[in-house]
Simulated scan of single mutants.
Amino acid sequence: MTNVLVRRRSRERGGRSDGFARLVAHTDPVALVGITLSITLSVMLDLSNAASGVESLLAGLMGITISLLVDSLARAERRFHLRTLLDGPPWLVHAVPEVVTGTREAVERHPGTRVAEEARRRFERFRAQTEQLRVGRIIRPGDDCQDLLGGTRECVRRLDAVTNVMPRASGELSWWRSDIGRHYWAANVEALGRGVRITRVFLHVGLTDELTELVRAQRRAGVRVGLLPWGVVDASRHVNLTLWDGTACWEGVMSAHGEITENQFSVNPPDLARLTDVFDVCVEAATFLD
């Protein structure tokens, strides 16, 4: 029984101290300084006999009242700012408070654990991804090509592309034979059927039978094909890219072995300008089989 009472008192003291800590944490720093100065001023006036006890008390209360008013105004300003930030689509307004609350509770309920650390990492990753979206860019892993397919299916006028055949992969063209490559080519054929003009430049280290057959197949389907040997243009322009109607673009970031490790879809003007410049340079240097 004694142990139960001790634990209860300990919890009560802990609850009071936790409540005070939360109060301090959520009070504006300016208000805390104002309250402290008000109490100090009241005590000094009383001890120095510069004012009567009642006057000292009133001066302290007046300072505290002003400080709390400042704190109230600061809170109102923050609430107004948050409401402004959440002034958007309904799905965003409903989701943001839940995301923030869930992350905060994960950290508060499991402090110092791997759960709290993982909550912080995931929130940071979410913030970084949101910043990419903010500038008009979607970044996905190398095996997720949904934006490449989606952009091709939505294209209405022209599709410009550069296919970089790496030295290791030259002659095997494994990407075009893969599942994603077949789906991408099918989307190209559908686009041609809609009247989309497709221009594709193949960067290569040598014409093999397999590459020649691929070029012939694309030309028969209606693609304007250009061939560009390695070394003619600067290595910085050896990229895989697609441009749709001059309004959106895709870039496949490659490893040293020619494997696409990252898919970048973008409507960001600087990205569009950079990849358009790469395409224009490659077109100018390529030999077209017209």
Rank of each mutant, 00 (worst) to 15 (best):
I39F: 05
I39H: 01
F80K: 15
E55D: 09
S236W: 06
I198Q: 08
G150D: 07
T242I: 10
W176E: 09
C155V: 13
T247M: 06
V33Q: 12
R197E: 09
N3R: 14
L227Y: 02
R140I: 07
E118K: 11
A116R: 08
S266W: 03
G252M: 01
P269N: 01
F202V: 01
V99M: 11
W250I: 08
L272I: 03
G34P: 00
V107S: 02
L203F: 15
R122N: 12
G231M: 14
C155T: 11
E259P: 04
D143I: 03
V4P: 12
N263S: 10
I35V: 14
T152R: 11
W175E: 04
F288I: 01
V162E: 06
A273L: 06
G231W: 05
Q129V: 07
T287Q: 11
E98R: 12
L149K: 08
F126R: 14
D147H: 11
Q218M: 09
L32W: 08
L73R: 13
R140P: 04
R220P: 12
N164L: 13
G142P: 04
L5G: 11
V239S: 08
T287S: 14
A235Q: 15
L275F: 01
C145R: 15
L149E: 09
L241S: 02
P111D: 07
L57E: 06
A31I: 03
E190W: 05
F279D: 00
L58R: 11
E251C: 15
R120K: 15
S48M: 13
D234Q: 10
A186P: 13
G195S: 02
R194V: 06
R134L: 15
A221Y: 02
C282M: 00
R13I: 04
R200V: 05
G193Y: 07
R121T: 03
N164K: 07
D271Y: 01
A285S: 02
P90E: 05
E262M: 15
R75G: 06
M62A: 14
A191V: 05
P90C: 08
G151Q: 11
T242F: 09
V93I: 14
A59V: 13
L37P: 01
R200F: 00
S56M: 09
L57C: 03
T103A: 13
I180P: 08
L32T: 09
D290N: 10
G246M: 02
P270S: 02
I180H: 10
P29M: 03
R120I: 10
V96A: 08
E117N: 10
